[in-house]
Amino acid sequence: MIDFEKVKLKVNDKEITIGCVLESNGSTANLKTGAWRSKRPVVDFDKCIGCGTCWMLCPEGCISKREDGKFEIDLDYCKGCGICANECPVKCIKMIMEEK
């Protein structure tokens, strides 16, 4: 088994890893790409039928199923592309301008 602690070393006081390997842990989540957004999706949960189309097509994978079966968008990561709003079969998502 790989001991990820043993793979670490320090050069110039910077922590790096042998052969620049990383644990596949989805750590890009450290960067909240929601800051890139110029338009924001707003879901009308009364209209949402919980089909999952938005979830399946979102390039970010930042849409998740709520306990009530409807889908919510994590605005920390949503880049505001608008695919969800365009594809929603019941048109329950609206894109509105972000306020700066």
């Binding site: 790989i2 042998i18 990383l22 644990e23 596949s24």
Partner: peptide
Amino acid sequence: PLHAVLDPKQPMTQGP
């Protein structure tokens, strides 16, 4: 191996 394997039991990223 010390630092590099490709194994679903210990998933890692090589070549970033």
